[in-house]
Design a protein around this nucleic acid. Structure first.
Length: 376
RNA sequence: GGGGAGAUACCAGAGCGGUCAAAUGGGGCAGACUGUAAAUCUGUUGGCACAGCCUUCGAAGGUUCGAAUCCUCCUCUCCCCA
């Protein structure tokens, strides 16, 4: 695996690069579509690849562990073989579920007991186990087992949690070094910076994480409800410390504006459920702003979804028809919205990359963000 | 022809003398959603000069301090028997 920065924006820390994996190349800045259970909801891998143009997708250790189970995926030859996506995959470690399933978990001395959201059964995750599972799943990039703190989070807890994440990281790194991918290709482990919204904790965490000398590094614990300003401040502080030549991954971000601002701070990789989930709920990200396609005002708007969109569905379907599909609760509504939104996100990343290469990123970014501020 | 049941807000359907502008579903409208417990959740859904007032429960009369709820009559619907 390799990562090269090919261009730098003259007016900001933004950079364009290439991430090389055994399953192909990822141009950065990159957005990863979220396929929690091994599938991007409402989308075929063929459309993810050919229509949307994704180069990498994300899946979740916790969900795949519960269903269908690690053994099945391992016997299938790894997640790539199981779900038919032969390009790069990143798996989250289950750390986020410690946060989102907060009322169904219990910390012990060296791990976390989870209660399954599916059937209530109890399962024990440790850093070592999270690595073992991700070795068996076989994603190209795997994540350290961390705790994502909520917002707001008091200082003492943030510090305690950060220290626990650091201890877990050490165990993840050690266990990672002692094990191998089960499917014959290279995997990289990304550690995760925590520290909530406290600059000194973020600094401490970023320094600790940098010292682990991993292939790439992630920033976690943001976009959990804090003001965007805070998120940018934390991201800026952390990026200033993380190794310049290694990929930086801002986990769970975000809105188009969040992503563009974070690219400008030197982030290379993103993932977010927003284009898929919000799409299924009727929110469309278009080149002319954000729209709620379920609103009555679109009922007789026979213009294409996005006249300058890059996905076939953008010209194939009208706003009025897609609104009708949502109102009628047709499955096709979710499919069209998903392919459109992901197409938009991927287009935006390609364009951002191109603007960095051309040296015009900063001006372009400002113009784009103004467009996203407007709701139509 | 005989016997019975019923008409309530956009729809279905509770309510059966005051705490009813009227439960609950559905539908409509709007909002939320950031490493997915989410094809989900929340709000709202008679009018207005909106902590109050006005007009509503098939129509018209009546009883009562007070009626969607009781009585009379009218109109319409459905069911059973022949």
């Amino acid at each position: 695996m390799d990562f090269t920065i090919t261009h730098r924006d003259p007016a900001s820390p933004a950079r364009a690069g290439r991430l090389y994996t055994d399953h192909g190349t990822v141009d950065t800045p990159a957005f990863m579509a979220v396929g929690t259970a091994g599938a991007v909801k409402a989308l075929h891998v063929r459309d993810l690849r050919e229509s949307v143009g994704s180069q990498i997708m994300l899946s979740n250790t916790y969900h795949l562990f519960l269903r269908p189970g690690v053994d099945i995926i391992s016997r299938a030859g790894g997640l790539h073989h199981f779900n038919g996506w032969d390009k790069p995959i990143l798996t989250d470690s289950g750390g986020y579920q410690i946060y989102s399933l907060a009322d169904m978990r219990k910390f012990t001395d060296d791990g976390v007991v989870f209660q399954s959201h599916i059937d209530g059964s109890k399962h024990y995750f440790t850093p070592e186990r999270a690595i073992d599972i991700q070795r068996a799943l076989g994603a190209d990039i795997i994540m350290a087992f961390d705790e994502c703190t909520p917002y707001p989070c008091d200082y003492d807890y943030a510090k305690k949690s950060m220290n626990r994440t650091h201890k877990w990281l050490k165990r993840c790194m050690d266990h990672f070094a002692q094990t191998e991918c089960q499917h014959g290709y290279t995997q990289a482990l990304f550690p995760i910076v925590q520290g909530s919204i406290y600059p000194d904790l973020r600094k401490e965490s970023a320094e600790y994480i940098s010292g682990m000398n991993a292939f790439g590094n992630a920033i976690g614990g943001l976009s959990v409800g804090e003001p965007a300003r805070m998120m940018y401040d934390m991201t800026r502080d952390v990026c200033a410390i993380l190794p310049d030549l290694k990929p930086r991954y801002l986990m769970g971000v975000g809105t188009p504006a969040n992503i563009l601002e974070s690219i400008a701070l030197g982030v290379d990789m993103f993932d977010c459920v927003m284009p898929t989930r919000n799409g299924r709920n009727g929110m469309l990200f278009t080149s002319r702003g954000i729209i709620n396609i379920k609103n009555e005002k679109w009922k007789d708007d026979f213009s294409p979804l996005d006249p300058v969109g890059t996905v076939f569905a953008d010209l194939q379907y009208t706003k009025a028809f897609l609104r009708h599909l949502f109102v009628a609760k047709e499955m096709l509504a979710a499919m069209i919205a998903t392919i459109h939104n992901l197409g938009f996100y991927i287009w935006m990343m390609r364009e951002a990359r191109e603007q960095i290469i051309q040296g015009t990123f900063t001006d372009w970014k400002e113009k784009m963000i103004k467009q996203f501020m407007q709701r139509r």
